[in-house]
Amino acid sequence: MTDQPLLKVTNLKKYFPIKGGILGRPVGEVKAVDDVSFDVFEGEVLGIVGESGCGKSTTGKALLRLIEPTAGGVHFQGKDITTLGTDEMRKVRRDMQIIFQDPYASLNPRHNIGKILSEPLLVHGLAEKKERTEKVHEILRIVGLPPEAADRYPHQFSGGQRQRIGIARALIVRPKLIICDEPVSALDVSIQSQILNLMEDLQEEFGLTYVFIAHDLSVVKHISDRIAVMYLGKIVELADRDDLYDRPLHPYTESLMSAVPEPDPDVKKERIVLEGDVPSPSDPPPGCPFHNRCPYVMDVCREKVPALEAVHVNHYAACHLHTEEGGDADASINHLKGEKA
C-alpha cells in the first residue's frame, strides 16, 4: 500500500538479568534479543525462524510489550509504542494481537468460549451485550467452529479447535497486525496444514499483517513473504522467501536449509552438519556469534560483530563473507566449498 512500514523495529534488545548470591544481585545478563531491527509492511507475512532459544519468541512478545524490552524502539503505525503509558498502550493492543504457541495454556480453563471471545470486545468497549453474542457467533463461523462452541469450555476441545479459538480471540477485535508465536508447532502435522490454510484465508479476507514465528522451515516457507533468520538473539539474514531459500548468504542459513528433509530419495544433497552447540546467550562469543561453528570462519569474524547489511536488493545478511572486511569473500567460499567436495 505505502512505503511506510506498519511496524518498524529498531535496535530492539531484551536482556534478562541473572541474579546470584544470597543478596540476589545481578551477576550477568542473558541477551535473549540483541539489537534486532526490521520492518514489517502492511499486508505481508514476515517469518522469523531460528532454533530453540534464539530469541524469536522473546522478540515477538517484546513487540507487544508483553515482555518489556530493555532498549530499542517499536514503531507501530509511525508511533513508538515503547514509550506509551499503560492506558495508551491498552488502546494500541486492539490493533496488534497475538496467537500463542500452546493452545492448551493460552485459554483460561474456567471461562467458556463465549466469555473468552467476548472479553476483548468488552474491554475495548466495542459492542453491547447482544451484539457481542452475535459477533462471537460470527467469528466462530469464520474460524470454522459451530455457534454451540460458545457454551463449551476449553477442555472440551481438541488442540486444533483450541487453536482456532485462539485465532478467533485475536481476530475478534479486527486487528491490523497479528504476531503468530509458533501457532502450529504444538499441533499434529495433519492439523497444522488446516490451521495454516485458515490463517492464510483470514489474512486475505481481513487484509492482515503477520509476524510469523516458527522453527519449522517448511511451515515458514509456506506462509511467509519475507523471512528473517535469527541466531543467538540476532538477525543473521533477512530476505524475500524465494531468494532466501534459493541462495542463502549466511553460513547458518545455509546449514539450516540443508537440514530440511528432501522428500525425493533419489536427490542427493549435501548436508552441512554444524559442530558444537549454540553458545550460551549469557556469554556470547566475541565478534560474530556464529564464528565458533562456522565452516568459513575468518580472523575478522572472531573480532568484529558483522552488521546486517544489504548484499543484494532486499537481501540482508550479517556476515563478513559479504562485507569488505571479508575481502575476497566469494573466492574464499568457493575455495572452501571446493575443498569439501
Binding site: 508483553l66 494481537q97 480453563p109 485462539g166
Partner: peptide, 26 residues
Amino acid sequence: EEEYIMAAKAQGMKSGRILVHHVLPN
C-alpha cells in the same frame, strides 16, 4: 505466569480485571 494471563494482557485488559476475572477464579 500462565499464558492465558499474558493473553489477557495482550487483549488490553487492566490488571484489576485480570486479577478478579482470571487470577482469582483459577
